[in-house]
Design a protein around this nucleic acid. Sequence first.
DNA 1: CATGAAAGTTCATACTATTAACTAATTATG
DNA 2: CATAATTAGTTAATAGTATGAACTTTCATG
Lengths: 145, 145
Amino acid sequence: MDLMARVVRCCQEQVAEQAARFGVPPAQLRCLLLFRRRPRFRLGEIASGLEVTRSRATALVEGLVRRGLVRKQGDPGDGRARQVALTAGGARLLREVEAYLHRLHRRLLDWLPPEERARVLEGLSLLEQAMERMKQAEDRECFGP
Amino acid sequence: MDLMARVVRCCQEQVAEQAARFGVPPAQLRCLLLFRRRPRFRLGEIASGLEVTRSRATALVEGLVRRGLVRKQGDPGDGRARQVALTAGGARLLREVEAYLHRLHRRLLDWLPPEERARVLEGLSLLEQAMERMKQAEDRECFGP
DNA sequence: CATGAAAGTTCATACTATTAACTAATTATG
DNA sequence: CATAATTAGTTAATAGTATGAACTTTCATG
């Protein structure tokens, strides 16, 4: 499926361009985008949200802390846990990134034939579902009874 | 475009699974797949084919050499250049990988509704073209007159 | 209360990719 | 033809990405 590989590559290039534009490495940017949902997460929630290890999440958050985009605090309900909260600077950058992504999305749609836009999105959705289902089937094969 | 990100992530997971299955790191596997076209390349051709630097191609080829999948030779026509050729073991593994990818592709299609298969592929193709055209338009913006 | 599990951190490791500097070979130029 | 410029590949340094193991502290459970 070389077509898929090419689409993936385009996306990766886009991500790299964003990282350069905002001066935040790709994975840290992805981490920052988690805060679209909420301004505060536990470190472990970040790890699950990004589907990486807690060890990796620690490093990513550290990177954001160093850039002043988030800060770390204790968790009142659990002495082991850390809360990670957006700073004002982080919230500002996040808004910028969101606006940029929104514009990018619109621009991409503009490059598609108008009659085909819904079709393409639908096709992508079907593809994602197919892939997820295939993955689940494989997981079941490996660990089935 | 969270849908796109999810599709990309599925692909990346699939690539990681393949790497584990064949015991070759993802980038080296990608390099090996270049040899589908020809059994022999110059190192610089590998770099362009993969769209990485010559320095990176050197390391990737070194990895394949260490696994006995390719070997390096001089180039009769140019004293600076190196030829990289598939070994018998490399050819064997390549055939395995190809067969596996072929099966994977078929399986993915099986998970799509039959009436939608052509549509999904067409949509992907349109998307790729849109992305490439958008990228070229941006490149022109940066370096235009 | 003792024991097992969980949260986050640190360190080591492997992979991915780039740049800069370098040497040797080839090509371009006057 | 001699010299300058360019090219091919290599090496080392660097930054980013992710995992696993070991560890300490805190929480959950019987």
